[in-house]
Design a protein around this nucleic acid. Sequence first.
RNA 1: GGAGAGAUGGCUGAGUGGUCGAAAGCGAUCGCCUGCUAAGCGAUUGUACGCCCCUAAAAGGUGUACCGCGGGUUCAAAUCCCGCUCUCUCCGCCA
Length: 427
Amino acid sequence: MLDIKYLRQNIGLVGKKMNQRGQSIDFDRFLGLDIKRRDILLAVETLRNERNDASKKIGELKKKKADASALIAEMSEVSEKIKGLDENLKLTEEELNNFMLMIPNIQHESVPIGQGSEDNPILRSWGEKPVFSFEPKAHWDIGENLNILDFTRGAKIAGARFTLYRGAAASLERALINFMLDLHTGEHGYTEVLTPFIVNRESMIGTGQLPKFAEDLFKIEGMDYFLIPTAEVPVTNIFRDEILDEKQLPIHYVAYSPCFRSEAGSYGKDTRGLIRQHQFNKVEMVKFTKPENSYDELEKLTANAEEVLKRLGIHHRTVSLCTADLGFSSAKTYDVEVWMPGQNVYREISSCSNFEDFQARRASIRYRQEESGKVEFVHTLNGSGLAVGRTVVAILENYQQADGSVLIPKVLQPYMRGVDKLLSPKA
RNA sequence: GGAGAGAUGGCUGAGUGGUCGAAAGCGAUCGCCUGCUAAGCGAUUGUACGCCCCUAAAAGGUGUACCGCGGGUUCAAAUCCCGCUCUCUCCGCCA
């Protein structure tokens, strides 16, 4: 959510920024609601003030056993007026609030202006595309040939976009989760948290999934609960409605969680393989920082995500999302894209964002400045470290061998009881 | 699922219709005092929104709201009534 005072005073600038993101906002409606709200507020507060004064007098009169009936009758009328105005105010505030909740964040000045993902500049690249003496296969073929990924059975059990892992694939997924958590907690200074995977509506509003993107979420029928689409939601909401001490910042959390996404609107897209699933595992890093440090922290966060792929020895590159490609809540986002030789494409495997105070304002996460005593919104950031299913894909495709086997990167072998090569359970 | 108890400021905890944004204690901050330390003394110590002031922000002034959340009664609600949520205790069930 944007700061309403800022919006009021910088309508033109915000409009321009929104246009760069391919959004347009009905600012006349905003200004109308904003003025209406303040008008009603002023009127109702004036009446309340009058009533508060009169009520005090009534109390005094009654104490003196004097007659207060005239004043009481008068205030009875005032109260009726207040009631009417209050109702009006509530409706107006609701409307204004809903309006504010639908406005995306303002992008940072360093965000490149563009029309789509093709305009995302490549900032850096690590490693090389592997060279194969044979035609590299896509992971769905590798996984099925090895009998470790079972898309048919996954679909039978649940439906399209669900996969059954068997044997070494299941073990690899688990190894990756532990490897990533150990790296981020042991070397990058994050504290591990394990959260609920179901959250309430307030949490979804806090991080920006609601109210605008309800169709992307799985909702529990008959209850106001949602399956999390990312650990970002429960982790960021840990401090919702709290005022932190400046001393506590920065806070760095890392969490494993499954992620559930309805993938509404992506029918027919990435239907094969593990790329786009209704349920996938992810290790997520979340930071709470002071405003002045958040962009430094974003660089570090992104480097932490890249480090996972470096340790795994997989070629990847990092892009800066342009204005058109930026997510709703984000002020700036870096995507880490991993090379998938079996599909001959780069795939997003991590998305690292600085939300500045956008989520903090929605979720009311603040901190008290030690020197001035002032209360200020924190900045929140998060990034995948990494999407686990897609990492499995990257390993299968990048480390596949001519005989159909797949080598296991060295750093993972201790997590796989020393296994260095995936072989078919049948073999 | 059944029975009961509770939710007040950073914390503990008082407060059953008006003088309560809320006692007291603890903590914290500032100052005083005493060679140092400890103790003592004094002051300050929530958040949001509006209006005034102001080029703007801050500061200042002023008002309103907030005692788990939402309604209701009343001139007036932390206090009375209704609904909800959460926490705790006991019983039952359960990974």
